[in-house]
Computed example of a mutant assay.
Amino acid sequence: MLEKLAMLSVNTNAGALSALRNLEANHKWLETLQERIATGYKVASVKDDAAIYTIAQRMRGDLAGIRASLDSINRATVAVDVALVATESISDILIEMKGKMASLLSAQKNNDDAAAEAYTRDLDAYREQIKLMISSADFNGTNLIDSGNDIISALANSDGTETLDFNHQDLSFGGALITLTDDQEYSMEEINNSIDNVNRAMGHFGTASRRLEIQHEFASKLHDVVERGIGRMVDADLARTAADLQAAQVKEQLGILALNIANQAPNSILALFGRR
Rank of each mutant, 00 (worst) to 15 (best):
V250F: 02
G203N: 04
R36W: 09
V10T: 13
T87A: 12
A107K: 03
K221I: 12
D183K: 03
R127H: 04
L155S: 08
I73S: 00
M202K: 05
D62T: 15
S72W: 06
K28G: 09
D138Q: 08
F166Y: 02
G40Y: 04
S153I: 01
S18L: 09
E189Y: 02
E227P: 06
S209K: 04
L70D: 09
S158V: 13
V225F: 11
L238N: 12
I52E: 12
A115Q: 08
L180A: 00
L8P: 13
S209P: 05
I178S: 00
A56P: 03
T207G: 12
T161S: 04
D62P: 05
L5A: 10
I191H: 00
A64H: 12
A137V: 14
I37L: 08
A243V: 15
A156Q: 11
K131M: 04
S18E: 08
L270M: 06
E189K: 05
S106R: 11
S106V: 14
R121E: 15
K251F: 01
A219W: 00
E227N: 13
L123Q: 05
A236F: 10
T163I: 12
Q169N: 10
G148D: 05
L132V: 11
L272D: 11
N13V: 05
K100I: 09
I230E: 03
Q249L: 09
V43K: 01
A16S: 06
F218Y: 15
E35C: 14
D224G: 11
R36V: 00
A86I: 07
I134A: 01
E24G: 07
R121M: 15
Y119M: 13
D150G: 07
T39R: 01
R228N: 15
M233D: 11
N193W: 06
L180V: 02
A265K: 09
M101A: 00
D124T: 15
L272A: 08
E227M: 14
I178G: 00
N167V: 14
N260A: 07
K28F: 08
A16N: 02
A242S: 13
M7C: 15
L70Y: 07
I256G: 11
S268W: 06
G160P: 09
M188R: 05
S268T: 12
L180S: 01
D138R: 10
L245S: 13
R211Y: 07
L257G: 13
T39K: 03
A115F: 02
D81N: 05
D244V: 15
A258K: 07
I178E: 00
R36I: 10
I230G: 03
T179F: 01
L272H: 08
K221Y: 12
E96I: 10
A156V: 12
A176Q: 02
